[in-house]
Computed example of a mutant assay.
Amino acid sequence: MTTNASECFNDVLKPARGMPIQALVCATYYHTIDLFLKQQENTIGWESEAVPPYIPRVRVMLRKHAEEAESCLG
């Protein structure tokens, strides 16, 4: 489990090796944002499916968290 997580982290940082610290932080930041945007697209797709993968209670919780997250963007 630990090796797998560290390998994933290594793959994220591999393109940024040899860069100054500021560039490394920016590369990590933008990669993280990209992952969040991809997950958001997946979630939007799930909501429109005829048979959603989540039970109603979980969908309500996800919608609530999404609303709270949108209020943080402002």
Results as ranks from 00 to 15, higher is better:
M1H: 03
M1R: 03
M1G: 06
M1N: 00
T2Q: 08
T2D: 11
T3N: 13
T3P: 00
N4A: 10
N4L: 05
N4M: 04
A5M: 07
A5T: 00
A5D: 07
E7A: 05
C8F: 15
C8D: 15
F9Y: 06
F9L: 14
N10Y: 14
N10R: 11
D11S: 02
D11C: 02
V12K: 03
V12C: 04
L13A: 11
L13P: 01
K14G: 04
K14M: 12
K14A: 15
P15H: 01
P15D: 03
P15M: 03
R17A: 10
G18I: 01
M19H: 14
P20N: 15
P20Y: 11
P20Q: 15
A23L: 07
A23K: 09
L24K: 14
V25Q: 10
V25L: 08
V25D: 09
C26H: 13
C26K: 12
A27E: 14
A27L: 04
A27W: 07
T28C: 06
T28Q: 08
T28F: 15
T28H: 08
Y29A: 13
Y29Q: 15
H31D: 15
H31S: 15
T32L: 10
T32M: 11
I33S: 01
D34R: 14
L35E: 11
L35G: 04
L35R: 08
F36M: 10
F36V: 12
L37R: 09
L37T: 06
L37N: 11
L37H: 08
Q39H: 12
E41A: 09
N42S: 08
N42L: 03
T43A: 13
I44S: 11
G45I: 00
W46F: 10
E47S: 09
E47A: 15
S48R: 15
S48G: 05
E49F: 03
E49M: 12
A50C: 02
V51C: 01
V51T: 14
P53M: 02
P53T: 03
P53W: 06
Y54N: 12
I55Y: 05
P56Q: 07
P56D: 05
P56C: 06
R57W: 08
R57L: 03
R57I: 10
V58A: 11
V58C: 04
V58M: 03
R59P: 00
R59Q: 14
R59D: 09
R59G: 02
R59N: 10
M61R: 13
M61Y: 10
M61I: 05
M61E: 13
M61G: 06
L62Q: 06
L62N: 04
R63T: 01
E67C: 04
E68W: 08
A69N: 07
A69Y: 05
A69Q: 04
A69D: 04
E70N: 09
S71R: 00
S71N: 02
S71G: 02
C72E: 09
C72V: 01
C72P: 06
C72W: 03
C72T: 07
C72F: 01
C72D: 05
L73Q: 01
G74C: 02
G74V: 07
